[in-house]
Amino acid sequence: MSAFSAINEEREIDRDEYTPGVEPQPTWCPGCGDFSVLKALKQALPEIGRSPEETLLCTGIGCSGKLNSYLDTYGFHTIHGRSLPVARAAKLANPGLEVIAAGGDGDGYGIGGNHFIHTARENHDMTYIVFNNEIFGLTKGQTSPTSPKGHKSKTQPHGSAKEPLKPLSLSLNAGASYVARTAAVNPNQAKEILIEAMEHDGFAHVDFLTQCPTWNKDARQYVPYIDVNESDDYDFDPTDRVEAAEMMRETEESLNEGKVLTGRYYVDEDRPSYGQEKRAIGEMPEEPLAERYWDDDYEWERSYDRFVGKHA
């Protein structure tokens, strides 16, 4: 019997279950795009049948990291840039959990960029949502890795001399097996993409455009947006790496020109997840490791029996 009976329990789940009973300490400004991520997650989670107690949401630091205050699951609000290593270890320790990592563009593409590259490369079975508002929200509006070139802020008074980072292309090249972009203004697409991302077996990266009306006043509200999978103007195959790469390039370039393209860019259902790879070479147990500590019948091997011969 599992020690974690919330996992895979068969029951109807109501979206209100994710809403805290007490209004959290207010952090998000009115009109903030972050509310849309919350709303989309609250819709997507019941649809894939994962309850608050079988879900672990690991966040970074930023306005985005406050998602944990609004979404009532098991949560780990970690430190700036480090949600991914915490999240992927939890998934390895207990693959039964629905593990979601989330954070800002500064958090994930800047300070945590190395973890982003490697978590994608390893294809951990989890969903990573980046609240991309093209700015440092929580620290009051400094230029972020995705801020457009020329973006002025208190820390870039002459306008940023840097080209923005291209998160979708980076993700694809690093090895993510599901890459999508959606926008706060597009709730239905957001919900659908989050459902797909969470159901995907592997690293699913969702770059979520979230407007920051407080600090990024001149930035677009990400309207109108175009869904590249729906629009007749675009024709590409998201299972084809080369076509996906081209579509990403166009999307990332056109955002700076004010054209908001969104959709699923890359989907590879064949690539085994990291857990599968590790099990295949005998480096990960078949049963969730976290269960073992509750199994009274399990015989823990003594180092004495294992190693003494080597040292005698």
């Binding site: 915490v86 270890a89 939890a90 320790a93 959990l97 490791l289």
Partner: peptide
């Protein structure tokens, strides 16, 4: 893993999920 920040963060994540 990729660096020691990740290494310690992984240990914390695994422990949080119930593993020594």
């Amino acid at each position: 893993v990729e660096d020691e920040i990740a290494a310690a963060a992984l240990a914390v994540g695994a422990s949080h999920a119930g593993v020594k």
